[in-house]
Nucleic acid binder design. Structure first.
Lengths: 337, 337
DNA sequence: CGCTGCAATCGTAACGTTACGATTGCGTAA
DNA sequence: TTACGCAATCGTAACGTTACGATTGCAGCG
């Protein structure tokens, strides 16, 4: 983007017979320049289409006005992370509004999260980092705190340190979901989770246990599955459960893929959704509306989560000594009726 | 990201009693420095964890090593653009491999595409642009060509100028889809398209017309719908068609939302997929596998499209005088059986 | 009239990098 | 010995910006 005729401070200064310094100050309404001069400077700046050069400024101030979001790629199927797109959109919009730009750093499952973050840090091309897909005892948090780099996490980890995060109240979601199934009369309730070290899944397990304990139902480990769900694996797993001697009558899905897999099995087995088996799931509000029977859906406004992540991060950047924010999104549970 | 102890050329130079110039050259294997010196410099650079400063370099060279992708946000529903996530992932990975980073610029439907692009250009914070959602006579292409800014479009527009693009062969997709329905015996074939000015939709219409003409079937405008599809609007539209005196027996969906809406209507009306009505759609390979009857699915590897976009753009940047590439992705049509 | 204080403006250096044209040292040919 | 060519290295300026400490002009005061 070199189109050579880009206006800079020097040109404006020359045109007005002012110094570069005064122009620079005028453009940011410095109190030390005459209001009339400010007006003249701004007028010329506007006419020649002046926009401060990103890199000149970054070099001088050390601030880049760029935020980087580290997002893992899913291998299974892109349907598996529907929520990521509105998250990205929410982040970019919020960043844009305050003059930041958002850079996306995708990591593949092969990437070592800590190592790739190290490399990211060294380029020091961002003022702050948004990291996601937290795992138990996440080393990245310690690293970032050590280096005093502004960051915010999407999701929590189990460390005894304060760090800024935005998270979804997974415990409550799982509790609500399980509770709803219990209320429908289910006692054998299957639960889909992601890999064990995934912090969100661990939290959901807690909510599930709490609801089950309240209802006085013992936990049956064989009904709880950890894994990376695709439609196929979800279908296979649920099919196996239904074939057992004491099949589940309720299912809490991990995501939309899990739901679609389970629905497929129900269809194949001729079981009726909403009577033979009750299902609750997440983030599938639209799809749920088209199902023959009502299912419970817990949904979170991911665009709002994205916006909040950026806002929290920007506050960390401008006020590193400020309070360490911890924000929990409750989301909405639509019980179906 | 200020963590003050970041190594720079000066420090390395001081440590080795060399000049900054020599260090700089040594690090990029300049032929004018002694191989032994190169080795020593690199060794120290590695030890102190030197990484070239992005902004210093950008300021000096005018190159930022950043690419910006302009992506529209969908208002209707995030399901509507499933393909965007793998596109983003493909782009970021390809960019990363060659040392670029990818910045995402989301535009809302309220944004004037040309105006927001202007603003984007002025900040000159990217070496090149990827623009999407092309419209008829897209003004952005002219603007970018005028300013000699490296760019590539995802999708084509109808201008008499050569410009680099990567596109999906929508005409062929629509042709294949229509042809498949004709082969199934359909003569009343409904077609879902996006808004008329959307270039991809216009191209698909051409493919549809070609297949219909080949089959000797006259076009019935009432079977062709332009609009922004949600599940609900797709369902309502298709329901209306089915209620008419001469209902369609075939349907080519615009996307997965359109498909889900149509499936819902079939279920409600008790019509059988694959006998009463045949359906073809796009990018729903996984979902299709779970449907009671086989449907035709045309799928494109969007991650590959993303990678290609970045690669073409990088070639534009390094060799602006090089050939203007135009790449068409055929995708794969899975006829169902 | 000379001094002070203030408002307005200026000049210079610096951020880290690279490009360009010098400069050094040394072996070799005249 | 002197001049030359070459390899290796150096010094300086510049990219566009901002921070800092000067500098100017002028009104008000004793």
């Amino acid at each position: 983007m070199k189109s050579g005729d880009m206006a800079n401070l020097k040109q404006i200064a020359a045109e007005l017979s002012l110094s570069v310094t005064t122009v620079s100050r005028a453009l940011k309404d410095g109190p030390e320049v005459h209001p009339l001069t400010v007006a003249r400077v701004k007028e010329v700046a506007k006419r020649v289409g002046y926009v401060p050069d990103h890199h000149g400024r970054a070099l001088k101030t050390g601030r880049t006005m760029t935020l980087t979001a580290v997002l893992p790629m899913e291998t299974s199927d892109y349907l598996s992370d529907l929520a990521k797109l509105p998250l990205i959109e929410g982040m970019t919009l919020a960043a844009r509004q305050t003059g930041y730009s958002l850079s996306i750093y995708s990591t593949t499952p092969d990437d070592d999260p800590v190592e790739s973050m190290r490399r990211l840090l060294q380029a020091r091309s961002a003022d702050g980092l948004i990291i996601t897909r937290m795992v138990s005892g996440d080393a990245r948090v310690k690293l970032l705190l050590d280096q005093a780099i502004p960051f915010v996490t999407f999701g929590r980890t189990d460390l005894d340190i304060a760090y800024p995060y935005v998270d979804i109240d997974n415990e409550q979601i799982a509790y609500d979901a399980t509770r709803r199934l219990v209320d429908k009369g289910c006692r054998r309730i299957a639960l889909q989770l992601l890999v064990p070290k995934d912090q969100a899944s661990a939290t959901r397990l807690i909510g599930y246990r709490r609801a089950m304990a309240e209802a006085g139902i013992p936990i049956d480990q064989s009904l709880i599955s950890h894994g990376t769900f695709t439609m196929e694996s979800s279908a296979a797993w649920f099919d196996r459960l239904l074939a057992s001697s004491d099949p589940p009558t309720g299912l809490a899905c991990a995501n939309e893929l899990g739901l679609l897999g389970a629905l497929h099995v129900l269809g194949k087995r001729g079981l009726a959704l909403g009577s033979d088996v009750h299902i609750v799931t997440r983030d599938s509000t639209r799809l749920a509306r088209f199902l023959p029977a009502k299912i419970g859906v817990h949904s979170v406004d991911m665009a709002a989560v994205g916006r909040t992540l950026v806002e929290v991060l920007e506050r960390r950047i401008t006020d590193p000594a400020g309070p360490v924010e911890a924000i929990l999104f409750k989301g909405e549970f639509d019980a179906g009726e």
